[in-house]
């Protein structure tokens, strides 16, 4: 048995070697396996995306060296970011980020900043949707807002992932819009949050589309609105009657809250432009695959691609925005 397995590996190795014998265009290429750091636990949104990219790269032979996904979730992702920060000039390390790139240093005081890293590319933006249980009486955000406003502070419960991170930031923004306080209950992962809502242990959630889609299709959850400036671009029917694009924006429904989460790639500082270009090119290829197209459609990701200065400017603006949001919410570590 072992020999047949070894053969598989040898075969895989050969294919890579053949692919590699063609002249490479980029001036620089990784010389050893590339560590793909995920500053979050296994099974979460960032982890799923990283492992998906690992699969796509391997399947389409996009890189000579393998991509290895390593989870460093300690301290709300600080562990992973510190690792990259300390790996100055190492071109064989990349990290996929989520909003904790901005929120973790603010909330915990752990010393790192996105400027300690080299921005490579923004892959997509992740949407947030306001969900309620399908058996609840709320059909529109206005219904739910009215119920919150009519009740005492803290009567309605919002479940979310982690503490002082994106989900809680949105919750605080909703508090502000309604003038009443929601009870925020933090859970470890987005999947848990969706199930808690299905089980009616909480009243609402702001799950990413991919975390809740299965329950939506099964008729257990109901989306009320999306926290974006315009409806999502996907018009294929997800349930019998609705597509992602049919969910109205929260703003149009009288709940003026917007939030999008970065799914981007960063490298350590001190790397050369050649090295950055290699990865930019790699992710362009990844995004051109049909698998990526299906993945983003299933997860209703917002397909925005940015690199270079444009991306750095975006990150600077996002950092400022988060600082302001966290300050208002009182989440900044003293």
């Amino acid at each position: 048995m072992k020999s047949s397995l070894r053969r598989t590996f040898v075969a895989a190795g050969l294919t890579v070697a053949v692919a590699a014998s063609f002249p490479a265009l980029a001036a620089w290429e990784p010389t050893k396996p590339v560590e793909f750091i995920v500053p979050a636990g296994t099974g979460g949104g960032a982890d799923q995306m990283a492992r998906f990219i690992q699969g796509v790269v391997a399947k389409n032979n996009l890189m000579k060296q393998p991509l290895i996904v390593v989870n460093k979730s300690g301290g709300a992702g600080a562990e992973g970011f510190l690792e990259v920060k300390n790996a100055k000039g190492d071109p064989n390390k990349i990290i996929i980020t989520l909003s904790n790139l901005f929120t973790t240093p603010l909330a915990t005081g752990v010393p790192f900043n996105w400027k300690d890293l080299t921005p490579v590319a923004m892959l997509a933006l992740d949407e947030f949707v306001l969900w309620v249980n399908a058996e609840s009486p709320y059909k529109t955000p206005a219904d739910y807002m009215a119920a919150i406003k009519a009740a005492d502070n803290g009567k309605y419960k919002m479940a979310g992932t982690g503490s002082k991170q994106e989900d809680q930031i949105i919750t605080v923004a909703i508090d502000k819009a309604t003038g009443k306080k929601l009870t925020y209950v933090p859970f470890k992962g987005g999947g848990d949050v969706a199930v808690q809502l299905v089980g009616k242990h909480v009243d609402s959630s702001v799950n990413n589309p991919i975390e809740a889609v299965a329950h939506w299709r099964a008729g257990a959850l109901r989306p009320l609105c999306v926290f974006d400036t315009q409806p999502m671009a996907y018009t294929a029917k997800v349930t019998a009657t609705q597509a992602w694009g049919d969910i109205p924006t929260c703003k149009s429904q009288g709940l003026d809250v917007e939030y999008l989460m970065l799914r981007g790639i960063f490298m350590p500082s001190g790397v050369t432009q050649d090295q950055v270009d290699f990865y930019v090119d790699l992710f362009k290829k990844v995004r051109a695959t049909p698998e990526w197209k299906k993945f983003t459609e299933d997860g209703a990701f917002k397909n925005t691609f940015m690199t270079g200065k444009e991306f750095a400017d975006w990150a600077a603006a996002a950092e400022k925005h988060h600082k302001q949001l966290m300050q208002e919410a009182g989440f900044i570590a003293k």
Partner: peptide, 20 residues
């Protein structure tokens, strides 16, 4: 670890010489 399961373990100068 390094070749089959692609689990990176701490490496030093000797491994770097070999290209890892």
């Amino acid at each position: 670890f390094e070749i089959w399961f692609l689990v990176p373990l701490p490496k030093g100068p000797v491994e770097h010489l070999l290209g890892y």
